[in-house]
Design a protein around this nucleic acid. Structure first.
Length: 402
DNA sequence: CGAGATTCATGTGAAGTATACCTTTAGGCTTAA
DNA sequence: AAGCCTAAAGGTATACTTCACATGAATCTCGTA
């Protein structure tokens, strides 16, 4: 009986007409042929980096703009082209791309440099070595021949927020130590104000050239979506109205094209699953919830256990009544929870830091306030909205074993 | 009544500790001449 | 004697703890109008 059912599902799936031609083109990893409305930025980046084709070190470049304004995409695009040209002209050029936000990959000085070393083919242990040693490993392996290295540090603001700007200082100085190779650094930041509280030496050196990516407006996002959907969907699967809606939603908060693409992709997946031949407006609404949920799930799932418990404690408090709550309240609940599942209780000092981290991830919204006579504390609210809370709670319960 | 002192709960920085892992080194064992 | 293996010694990064001091506005205190 069940077997037959399964078979039925598969059969149906195969017979069903899919809305997709090439679903990949909606994914964030996809690099499209041309990037609409970013000509200025593309040529800006290209002009700066082009000098490496003459074996001259390009100026360091610092790029900032909000999420989903195409920073990463543009840089990657230019880099690909550059690599291709360099290959043709036999210019020794290497481009290293590192995303600093990756947990446990590049979020400390040591780990970043270790990652760089790995990118040039030197396995480096996760701990144990002096940081200088790792620097040396990296330098030596790039300095063995004349070449230009372009290091792209994406989400560089994270790295600095977590472990200070010393890394950047060291990296911007590397050229003095290298005999053959030359290094150019491209920093990409979502935080527009990030440069303000950075060592002025780093600032002047990293910001030799600066480029701002303004947010897209609704019309531009529409263009982008239209372009991609030509590749992604079969004829007539997606309606003008749907695209407008996605664009409008995304433009509503700071012109985030990535969000628009996500909306369209998820909406179309939902439509596909429903087995209807085209995407309807309500699919977009459903998609909006789902994306928010999925993003949060992804973050929560990979949180260290202790942070998960702190988050769960927040959810418990959120459930009762108080919304904002304070560090002390949270710590009490946290204690009970740890007791319940027999986990080691960390100090309040540490929890305070963990709350800070959850705040950075957007799961909490925490603000240090003074309650006058009644002390100073963090005022914490949940950064997760209504419908998702329950699901996150379920997820945590199953992961933590409540 | 208002200026200044007090107070509370916790933020925050610095230094210390435990753990896991790394390299170096010295000693011991094996092996081959 | 040379080569190889092993275990101890000495070192590091990271996550966490301990200690001590900093914060900042509501509240208290006390001098003054």
């Amino acid at each position: 009986m069940q077997q037959a059912n399964l078979e039925g599902i598969f059969e149906e799936f195969l017979n069903k007409e899919s809305v997709f031609l090439n679903k990949d083109s909606l994914s964030i990893r996809y690099t499209p042929e041309n990037i609409p409305h970013r000509d200025v930025q593309i040529s800006g980046v290209a002009k700066v980096l082009a000098s490496c084709l003459r074996l001259e070190r390009p100026s360091n470049l610092f790029i900032y703009g909000k999420t989903g304004t195409g920073k990463t995409l543009v840089v990657q695009k230019v880099c690909h082209q550059l690599e291709a040209t360099a290959l043709k002209k036999e210019v020794p050029l290497k481009i290293i791309y590192v995303n600093c936000k990756m947990r446990r990959v590049a979020d400390t000085e040591y780990r970043l440099v270790a990652q760089l070393a790995r990118e040039v083919g030197h396995e480096v242990p996760a701990t144990g070595l002096p940081t200088d040693e790792v620097y040396k490993t990296f330098f030596n392996s790039i300095d063995d021949k004349k070449q230009i290295i372009i290091i792209v540090l994406d989400e560089i603001d994270w790295l600095v927020k977590k472990s200070g700007d010393e890394v950047l200082y060291n990296l911007t100085r590397v050229n003095q130590e290298l005999k053959n190779a030359q290094v150019c650094i491209v920093g990409i930041s979502n935080d527009v104000t990030f440069m303000e509280d950075v060592d002025p030496r780093v600032k002047s050196s990293l910001g030799e050239e600066e480029l701002v990516f303004p947010p897209y407006d609704a019309l531009q996002i529409k263009d982008i979506l239209a372009e991609r959907s030509k590749i992604a969907f079969v004829e007539g699967a997606v309606d003008e109205v749907v695209i407008s809606k996605c664009a409008a939603y995304a433009a509503r908060d700071h012109g985030d094209a990535r969000r628009a693409l996500d909306l369209l992709r998820v909406a179309s997946e939902l439509a596909d699953r429903d087995g209807v031949g085209n995407i309807a407006e309500e699919h977009v609404d459903l998609a909006e919830d789902k994306i928010e949920r999925d993003n949060i799930f992804e973050i929560v799932k990979h949180l260290p256990t202790q942070s998960q418990i702190v988050l769960y404690a927040g959810l418990v408090l959120d459930d009762t009544d108080k919304q904002p709550f304070f560090t002390g309240d949270l710590f009490n609940i946290y204690n009970e929870l740890c007791d319940r599942i027999g986990l080691k209780i960390l100090t309040q000092r540490r929890i305070s830091d963990l709350i800070g981290e959850l705040d950075m991830l957007g799961l909490f919204t925490a603000k240090v306030i003074s309650k006058g006579r009644y002390g100073r504390t963090r005022e914490v609210r949940m950064g997760i909205n209504g419908g998702t809370v329950g699901k996150v709670k379920e997820l945590l319960e199953s992961q933590l074993g409540f």
